[in-house]
Simulated scan of single mutants.
Amino acid sequence: MLVTRTYCDVWMIQNGTMIESAIIGRSNTDFKNYLFNFCKVMPLIALVNNFLKLGLNELKLRFRVRLTKHLYDEYLK
């Protein structure tokens, strides 16, 4: 998911740059196309971000559970 998130970030930077260049160049059709692409891909990027957050939260939870179990086992010896 981290690689996918990196790819999404690079795409967002490139697309944002293209939107800005369309605004500077006063090209309505390019601006509309890039903006539509941006709006079309945003749900996918939001999904990637949420999956990444879910994975990190799961990793943190498993780490805390294993650490607690290890500490309890060491304490009860």
Rank of each mutant, 00 (worst) to 15 (best):
Y34H: 14
K60M: 07
Y7C: 01
K53W: 01
F36Y: 01
Y34F: 15
I23W: 04
T68M: 03
L76V: 15
F51A: 06
P43A: 05
R64M: 14
R64G: 02
A46V: 04
L67F: 08
R26F: 02
G25Q: 01
L59T: 04
N15D: 04
H70N: 07
S27K: 02
K69W: 09
F31R: 14
D30V: 00
M12A: 08
L76D: 15
Y72R: 15
F36P: 00
R5Q: 15
L44E: 02
M18Q: 05
L67E: 13
Y34M: 12
N28R: 12
F31W: 09
I19D: 03
K60N: 11
K40F: 15
T4R: 07
T29S: 14
K40G: 10
S27Q: 02
C8T: 03
L35Y: 11
Y75D: 04
C39V: 04
N49D: 11
N28W: 04
S21Q: 07
E58I: 15
R5W: 10
E58N: 12
L47S: 13
R5H: 14
L67D: 09
L67C: 06
R5I: 07
N28F: 06
R66Y: 03
N28G: 05
F63S: 05
L54D: 08
I23K: 14
F36L: 02
C39Q: 14
M42W: 08
Y34K: 11
S27G: 00
Q14F: 09
T6M: 07
K77A: 11
E20P: 03
